[in-house]
Amino acid sequence: MENKDHIFAYKTLFYVLLVLLILTSITVGISLVDMGKLNVWLALGIASVKASLVLMVFMHLKFEGRVLIISFLSTIFFLAIMIGFTFWDIGFR
């Protein structure tokens, strides 16, 4: 798959692209079926899986050291606080 120099083989990258395209068609397919609130969660769930693939492989996050991983996760943590606290406020108004 990849060697010690942190290089992804073209084949690996291409497979990731294929998975991303398949996930896109799945999310479009799901959106055509009305399942109420579940649609939103499924769409966001699939988008998160796609985003993780792009981050880990295309953006080489898989190869990065601890500093980058922790700082990235902290960003997501603060994003979660922003989203969580906003809805905490909205939900109990």
Partner: peptide, 10 residues
Amino acid sequence: SSFAVAAAIT
């Protein structure tokens, strides 16, 4: 396009 950029890095 993202795949192309990733391929460019490889």
